[in-house]
Amino acid sequence: MNKDPFYLGGVEFHSRLILGTGKYPSGEIMLKSIEASGCQMVTAALRRVDLDNPQDDILSRIDKNKIVVLPNTSGARNSKEAIKIAEISMASGLSEWVKLEITPDPRFLLPDGEETLIAAKYLAKNGFKVMPYINADPILAKKLEDIGCVSVMPLGAPIGTNGGLQTLSMIKIIIKQSFVPVIIDAGIGKPSDAAFAMELGASAVMINTAVATAKDPVGMSTAFKLAIDAGRKGYLSGLPSEKDEAEASSPLDWIKDL
């Protein structure tokens, strides 16, 4: 067993990859991709789940003993909609986990920080394990942590763009300042992006488009698994850092004589 687990909402995870469940060419390929990736958490849009007929659903084919299903509020445009969706999910016994996504703009699907904070505050107080999807805003991340979210999920680039870690400077601050796991969500396009995120010290990465829309999703999910392991190992093993020139400075000449 790997000796480097991470703890999220009181649960021990050994895989640092979370996969989405949308955009796959078929349910079969999705299941195979999940299995190949070794991931222990997948997210699914609640709007896609038929809570009245759960046995017909894609979720019914996932082994819940091995994999935590993280319902998400994708499609919610404000805190009220998101809270409602999450409450229905909990009431129907689906999950106390919720990936909070509030995207008022249907085009770029950028998260609304203000509404996310309102919904997160309410849901955390009411027993949910809240994982908010946010812009890479270090202040918002701290506020969400303070009110009891179990992780923060800053975006690396706009969702679906495969842009990589374009919010790098802010992600670094979030990781440095956070007590809860930081999971990079959205924008990760290539295994090397995921490795880079792990090298920075991210706790995990969340990937959907890059795997689901690959020519070979199963091959790609394996590649991500390897990249995440490699990046994490690199982080733990002490990466060399960029060099800095250190020149003696004349106002400090006296130091030589100490």
């Binding site: 250190a246 020149e247 003696a248 400075s249 106002p251 400090l252 130091i255 030589k256 100490l258």
Partner: peptide, 10 residues
């Protein structure tokens, strides 16, 4: 120390 101090100063 001279290099460390120079870095600290900068």
């Amino acid at each position: 120390l001279p290099a460390l101090a120079a870095k600290a100063r900068s």
